[in-house]
């Protein structure tokens, strides 16, 4: 037992948890082809969850602001992307990958622009007056979520909106008896690319250095001569743009979306950041993958208990590590 601890630590510590879950699921599921399908689905969902959750986590880490309205950006991203794809219906359905990709890029760009703009508005109008006051912060951002959801309802209506998928992302690849949806692989790649981008930003640039330092000790960064509030609005906009991209990707994954999407994702996103640990991007990715794998495996084994299983997992992890698996150093 004594040698096991350091060995696990050396091999990656808590980052081995998804592997452990996958192995356990392999045993429980029994059928390798189903397991592969579920694992790929879990990983791709995990990266979409990461997109949705990363902003929330960073914003909390940097400014101690918990934005309950964060999932509104997810909804907005989903609906804006769906609308753009519907407008560009001709390109989406065309037989040319070029036009397909163009429509997709347009939809995602629209989601990014909208998300960043909504983030700017949110930070300036909703969050700024209630810094340092957690109680009012929670209440106000929650109120903002309700308003945002109602605006979506008023704009797009209560009936499910259809999301057209670009032609080249339709279909599935058959691999050793398991079918892997192309869209899921695509979502996975997008998530990995975005993660790499954020990782680069945080670890290789001066702005990233300031963000990481600000997450640890905001006052000291200011005492060294930097304005954190200006940095913060940038991070807030980045976070909401990422959430919007996550929403756009999710919309394509679900293909049918309702205004309740944000509220549904909010709970999962919260579980992700609590499990992963607030303030760290690695932690958020870890939490997202763990939650998504659980969701898919349990959804297959005992469909009704998918959300409850994640809740139990969160409770267990909090008992074990009160700050989550890999929180930012404070």
């Amino acid at each position: 037992m004594k040698t096991l601890g350091p060995m696990i630590e050396k091999a990656g510590g808590v980052f081995l948890l998804p592997v452990a879950i996958a192995i356990l699921a392999f045993v429980l599921i029994g059928a390798p082809s189903s397991w592969l399908t579920l694992t790929v689905a879990g990983l791709s969902m995990g990266l979409m969850l990461f997109l949705m959750a990363s902003g929330l986590s960073l914003v909390f880490g940097l400014m101690d602001v918990l934005n309950f309205g964060h999932s509104a950006f997810v909804s907005f991203g989903a609906f804006v992307a769906a609308t753009v794809l519907a407008w560009l219906g001709g390109w989406v359905g065309a037989d040319s990958i070029f036009l397909n990709a163009l429509a997709l890029i347009a939809a995602i760009s629209a989601a990014i622009v909208f998300g960043a703009a909504a983030g700017w508005f949110f930070e300036r109008v909703i969050v700024k007056p209630v810094y340092k006051d957690h109680l009012r912060q929670i209440l106000i951002t929650m109120g903002a979520l309700i308003v945002a959801e109602q605006l979506i309802l008023a704009t797009w209506g209560g009936t499910p909106t259809n999301v057209p998928r670009p032609q080249f992302l339709e279909g599935a690849i058959i691999l050793g008896g398991s079918s892997l949806e192309v869209y899921r692989l695509f979502a996975f790649i997008v998530g990995v690319v975005v993660y790499a981008g954020i990782y680069f930003l945080l670890n290789k640039t001066r702005i990233g250095l300031l963000i990481r330092a600000g997450v640890e000790n905001r006052e000291m960064v200011e005492a060294l001569g930097f304005r954190i509030d200006r940095l913060f609005i940038g991070v807030f906009m980045l976070g909401s743009a990422l959430a919007a991209v996550g929403g756009a990707m999710w919309a394509g994954y679900e293909t049918l979306i309702t205004p309740a999407l944000g509220a549904e994702m909010m709970v999962i996103v919260f579980i992700v950041v609590i499990i992963g640990g607030l303030g760290s991007i690695q932690g958020t990715l870890l939490g997202a993958i763990v939650v998504a794998l659980m969701q898919n495996y349990v959804g297959f084994l005992a469909p009704k208990l998918a959300l409850a299983s994640n809740m139990l997992l969160m409770m267990a992890i909090l008992l074990w590590r009160p700050s989550g698996l890999a929180p930012a150093v404070k």
């Binding site: 909390f60 918990l66 309950f68 957690h134 929670i138 909010m266 709970v267 919260f270 579980i271 950041v273 609590i274 009704k304 959300l307 409850a308 809740m311 969160m314 409770m315 909090l318 008992l319 009160p322 700050s323």
Partner: peptide, 28 residues
């Protein structure tokens, strides 16, 4: 569990618990 951890977690955890209860009530 959560009052020990961090006050802000409490809001998130109660929210998660409430939605689990809601989902279970409509599924069982």
């Amino acid at each position: 569990l959560s009052l020990r951890v961090k006050a802000i977690f409490f809001a998130m955890i109660t929210l998660a618990a409430a939605s689990v209860a809601l989902v279970l009530a409509s599924q069982l």
